[in-house]
Design a protein around this nucleic acid. Structure first.
Lengths: 162, 162
DNA sequence: ATTTTTTATTGAATTTTATTCTGAAATATT
DNA sequence: AATATTTCAGAATAAAATTCAATAAAAAAT
């Protein structure tokens, strides 16, 4: 387990909501020098605590209006996807989880519409070995969608100006 | 529908994988002036095509080892969550989708472990009005997890140095 | 087809920020 | 307590962001 002090947590908290916050802004916010910030951030990146900086793009702007979750039941035979995880390399997929229970995989995928989802299942998913069955859940409306984690901040001990 | 030209798409594509890429780097990559890049990016932000810049933090570093999906069946009564979407404000949740089918909501949530998930369901989820039943799926292993969209680039017409 | 209007781009100037480095302070180790 | 290690601040420098006026290109209107 990696130990993160309150300063690290506040950096993560600020960056989580705004990946492009400048070091000087961070420094002002925490009441420290920009150089110290930079060193902290570099360390968080090197240790893999910060995994990546991503831009969230409006799916509608790219005409990806449909969001679906697909449960995949697969055989556990030696050459099946259960063994080689080949599912994760299919195009258009956002997430693939190996899950407990009857089903084996849960896929999150965006496509233009239901037609193109069917097309994807026929043309792409069908390439995968060992799939026994699928069950598709269509999203009607997304109420919340974030990758943010809950960060345990111990109140604002060293609260700052502004 | 918003029209995005190939330059916009390439900007989105580059920023999607590296939100913090500098304008000058972008400019070099696309063979344009940094100021032109800035204007494009600003426009993409203002139009809401770029929704946000996020930092992905390793959940393990924050001791959030468990990932789960919860299907929630709710009544459609006037005071139920089906009407007020109150589910989305529960702490610790990453996603809430309103889905087609028997169930009403799909929740994505991270917690420390299964104990704390049960605790969350007893202490937080139970506050929500109108829940008829829940079905929880535990993730054993995540093979892929991204928010990236597939961007339709028309090859590299204006390919550049480096 | 021509003019007008709008939009997009450049390049230089300016401001802001990132980055490096050195030494001091704090912390941990022995 | 002495040593080693880590963390931080402050100054100096390099790099990048940002602004802006002028130009070019595209679109719309006549």
């Amino acid at each position: 387990m990696i130990e993160l002090d309150n300063i690290d947590l506040r950096i993560l908290s600020l960056k989580q909501d705004n990946a492009c916050i400048s070091n000087s802004e961070l420094a002002k916010e925490l009441g420290m020098a920009p150089s110290a910030m930079l060193e902290r951030v570099r360390k968080l990146e090197k240790k893999g605590i910060i995994e990546s900086y991503n831009t969230r793009i409006n799916p509608i702007a790219l005409n990806q209006k449909l969001l679906a979750f697909i449960f995949v039941k697969s055989s556990t035979a030696p050459n099946s996807c259960w063994q080689d995880n080949s599912i994760k390399d299919l195009p258009g997929i956002q997430e693939v989880h190996h899950i407990a229970g009857d089903d084996c995989f849960l896929i999150k995928i965006r496509t233009e519409d239901s037609q193109s989802l069917v097309k994807w299942m026929r043309e792409e998913l069908s390439k995968i070995q060992g799939i026994i069955s699928t069950r598709t859940t269509i999203v009607l409306e997304t109420l919340k969608e974030t990758t943010n984690l809950t960060i345990p901040l111990t109140q604002n001990e060293n609260a700052q100006q502004h």
